[in-house]
Design a protein around this nucleic acid. Structure first.
Lengths: 129, 129
DNA sequence: TGATTTCGACGAAACACTTCGTACATTGGG
DNA sequence: CCCAATGTACGAAGTGTTTCGTCGAAATCA
């Protein structure tokens, strides 16, 4: 958590963030609607979670209207990098390469996607020279 | 957890696994020695954790000697893939490609490592044809 | 052998995460 | 104006994780 003011989201919190990143600013009802389709969840459960996330600084909200509208206070990619960095440290002895290589073996990736990755590799290599 | 009989290790458990993967079969004292260097930890704390991990099936032990000797019951790479898969699902909407691309941006990777990754990409592509 | 050290077992406490019941406020329709 | 519906706030309980103190057994050594 050293390099950011926002804490690492927990599992349930991440599910909520995903919805908000997807839909943009949303009410508790909106978020509950989405999550409840995946997995039955109480409305107040989601509400409480979002209130806690507000306290933690994970979310911001507009409470000028009756139905409070929540937005993530961090972008998806930043959080994703935070989680990856954490995993690299905790499970891959700090080696990003090891993680990437395991990830490539872990799930099937289409040829098109492989090509995109290759292009990114080229970019990185070009920048470092 | 659907595809494996061993549960996902928690954070503290993962630290212990790392030591065991590194050093091979070890006693509680050994593990405690290593962890305690990073971060002051009580001996019994590590002991208890390892006992719990034994119950969960994360570790196996030889208690024929007085100092019980513990070994991980799962290989490092398998656990790593489990954790990656989990992260892909929870934070990257199931897209391994997204994770890989974020990982490549998240930490600096040396040219040699980039080349190794490229080689792996070639392997994968070759196999899928 | 008796004292000291080393070890594992066990229980409990502290903490964090998750879930939900209940209470209370606001709004809109009849 | 009152009722039903829709919201938020709050507290508490259930669960899992982490930490550690205390105990007794076993080994070591003087």
């Amino acid at each position: 958590m050293a390099h950011s003011d926002v804490p690492k989201p927990t599992s349930a919190e991440l599910a909520i963030l995903q919805v908000l990143w997807d839909r943009g600013p949303s009410t508790v009802r909106d978020v509950h609607g989405v999550l409840n389709d995946d997995k039955p969840t109480g409305y107040t459960t989601v509400l409480k979670l979002m209130q806690i996330m507000l306290e933690k600084g994970l979310l911001e909200r507009d409470d000028s209207r009756r139905q409070h509208v929540y937005t993530p206070s961090v972008a998806a990619d930043r959080t994703q990098r935070q989680l990856i960095g954490d995993l690299i440290d905790r499970a891959f002895s700090g080696s990003a390469q090891k993680l990437v290589m395991q990830a490539l073996s872990a799930k099937r990736i289409s040829r098109e996607e492989l090509d995109e990755i290759r292009a990114l590799l080229d970019d990185i290599e070009r920048q470092s020279s």
